[in-house]
Write a protein that binds this DNA or RNA. Structure first.
Lengths: 150, 150
DNA sequence: TGAAATCATACTGTTTTGGTAAGGATTCCA
DNA sequence: TGGAATCCTTACCAAAACAGTATGATTTCA
């Protein structure tokens, strides 16, 4: 169970797309500028997102990416697993269970499973739509107070 | 937020200790044999556990380690944080929040926070006492069915 | 055709991980 | 008193993961 920059960048990019669903394809370059994500790195992330069926790509000039499903049907878990692989316990999974020589008869394994399930539940119950809406509200109130300090 | 072999090994060792509270100090060597943990690596882990006040050490021949508090007062979170440091989101924490240039005005940050809180809650609501008890039950039923296959 | 954009693959410097090595310090027991 | 057992400390190391960069091919529009 690991959450790295891939998840962070990927989620920012997906929220960005969700905020612009009716504007046609959005280029990776545009998103990388807006979100402060290294351009070439973001390109790689979009490969994963596309292969997972979360975004569609339009190649060539004026191309870009767009959500392939409604934002209400894409969860944060979808994004994370597209980029980081299946979200399993990093400890005591698969072969590692053999470490303690107990297999199923290991009391510790249950704790890691419950922790992973708890994360999955949080990520799976949050949709891109709700995050995009929240971000728009934040942007509006921020704009009302003036530009963001950097 | 990362759970590595340190947490897995450390928790196994602590459960081992909790199952032997009334037997005086238990040596690292003994635990490493029983749990299949590299001996010298386990020694390092005990340094962290001792500095966190979770175990007490007795040096010299017939020395070893013992729980410093009742097993009912030690949670899995205590063990994990003693070994891995404070359990915070690995994404969008501290300086990383500056990545998106939004600071507090970032909708994504809330998701990572909720995920981390969910893990903390699971780990903090599980005590060594309950795990030790569960392990003893598993060991008994396993012993009744014969030796564990390896 | 040329610019804009995705797609694919390979490379790289840094950090983390999961140990190992070597020896020192302390305590018990014969 | 001298081992032997045990914890303590520090240093070292190889492999993997991470966070990008680099290069170039391919596709599309104007």
């Amino acid at each position: 169970m690991r959450l790295t920059a891939k998840s962070e960048y990927g989620l920012l990019a997906m929220i960005d797309l969700a905020c612009r669903i009716d504007q046609g394809p959005v280029s990776a370059r545009e998103i990388s500028d807006r979100q402060g994500i290294p351009a070439k790195y973001l390109e790689q992330l979009f490969v994963g997102l596309r292969k997972a069926g979360l975004v569609g790509a339009v190649r060539g000039a004026h191309g870009g990416f767009a959500l392939e499903r409604p934002a209400t049907d894409i969860t944060v878990l979808d994004v994370v697993e597209a980029l980081e692989g299946s979200l399993r316990p990093t400890v005591c999974d698969g072969d590692r269970a053999a470490v303690c020589g107990r297999g199923d008869a290991c009391a510790a394994a249950g704790v890691w499973d419950r922790a992973t399930s708890a994360v999955r539940e949080v990520l799976d119950s949050t949709t891109l739509a709700s995050l995009a809406r929240a971000q728009e509200v934040l942007d509006e109130s921020g704009a009302a107070r003036g530009p963001v300090e950097r």
